[in-house]
């Protein structure tokens, strides 16, 4: 089996994996990072969003082998000890989740949005979330949380 190595949440990792191993399965099953979820498994719902070299991607649609040498960040890599990332804090503050299943993907996707667009409008936030499905909240508080986090992150 071929070896893959990458940096996940700042830590160098490597393993021998089957070529067909998806990045999300490598993260969850080999590294035990189960914060990244598999919702639809068809590249639509966005529960599996992680960052590869700083860019949000659906880790159910990337082979682990394709992330060779990359820097991967998952939901587990955001908080600084007990201090939540501003996006996580905003999701808590604004009650932007109910069951929480889509939340890791929402947070990872939203951080990428704010990195690219420091002051997104409500419309821009809603458009950006076209790749993240939530079946509980109706998105309202998610949008509010992202706008609030963007403000905090602008400082």
């Amino acid at each position: 089996m071929p070896a893959v190595s990458m940096t996940v949440n700042g830590k160098k990792v490597s393993a021998d994996v089957e070529p067909r191993t998806l990045l999300v399965h490598y993260l969850r099953e080999h590294l035990g990072l189960t914060g990244t979820h598999v919702g639809c498994d068809t590249s639509q719902c966005g529960a599996c969003v992680v960052h590869i070299n700083g860019e949000s991607v659906k880790s159910c649609t990337v082979l682990a082998a394709q992330a060779e040498g990359a820097k991967v960040t998952t939901i587990e890599g955001l908080a600084d000890g007990d201090k939540l990332h501003p996006m996580q804090e905003a999701f808590r503050e604004h009650h932007a989740l109910q069951c929480g299943f889509c939340t890791p993907g929402m947070v990872m996707s939203a951080i990428d949005l704010v990195k690219k667009n420091k002051n997104p409008s409500e419309k821009e936030i809603r458009e950006w979330l076209s790749g993240n499905l939530c079946r509980c909240t109706g998105y309202h508080n998610i949008v509010k949380a992202i706008a609030a986090a963007a403000q905090t992150m602008r400082g």
Partner: peptide, 9 residues
């Protein structure tokens, strides 16, 4: 095309 994450890849 697709959504932001799809457009990234």
């Amino acid at each position: 095309i697709g959504d932001p994450q799809v457009r990234h890849r």
